[in-house]
Amino acid sequence: MGIYLPIAEISVNVFVLLAMGAAVGFLSGMFGVGGGFLITPLLIFYNIPPAIAVATGANQVIASSFSGALSHMKRGTLDFKLGGVLLAGGVVGSTGGIYVFGLLRRIGQLDLFISLLYVVLLGTVGGLMLVESVNALRATRSGAAPTLKKSGQHNWIHRLPLKMRFRASKLFVSVIPVLGLGAGIGFLSSIMGVGGGFIMVPALIYLLKVPTNVVIGTSLFQIIFTSAYTTLVHATTNQTVDVMLAFLLMAGGVAGAQYGAKAGQRLRGEQLRALLAMLVLAVAVRLAFDLFVTPPNLYSLTGAE
């Protein structure tokens, strides 16, 4: 069944979009990430203009992270204070990101920049995660208990000034890296149409040493606001949010997410991380492929602004 998207101005198949949303929702429920890093490239592969894919992806992320954050709030695994500080940084980062987004679009390098960011970030995060989880898998096989957090071990981040106490995360740390992390994620969110969970989660665990059970809820909490802000700014400055497209993706996504969460419970932590790492790497490789292989069309058209 075809449907005409009012903002993207093309006809698409409803079931393809619902299935796309459901598949990504399933994976995001399983791994506890927003799924923006999957949905935006998928939309671009499906010929949705990148600018619209990014803005609409951000809108879609709100739905999945909101529903995820609700369940974490119920379980008490959400640090509102930490989330609030991350958010303050996020707003600054998003604003900068939107500006850069408009600039890149004018000079015609937006698509390249989006692809490069995806390849570099997904490649790095996926690679690191794969190495870590494979090591953890080996360790459990040889009998040692897997440990992520080594108590008493501090890095340079813990020596910065302006310390603040985050009770729910059992954390006493400077606000500078927290604000910086928020700003970085906000920037990426507005340029890539992602919530940034795939960077936020490892950064909170490995850099700030936040307990793993609090990380996902808190990251989802702050992603709701960053992506809501991104959606709003894209809607007002670029008019590139397609609610029809976003709604189809969300509808599939929220259904898939709940089943994914259930499936995820059957797997062990390090197995999940290894699978997620492979998924992230696969997306990175697919996008890198497009950068290096001779494109079928060397010429592209854009409307001048």
Binding site: N59, Q60, I62, A63, S64, S65, F66, S67, L70, I224, A228, T231, A246, F247, M250, A251, G253, V254, A255, A257, Q258
Partner: peptide, 8 residues
């Protein structure tokens, strides 16, 4: 998005 997430 929020209503969809909540309803879902």
């Amino acid at each position: 998005a929020m209503v969809t997430g909540w309803l879902g």
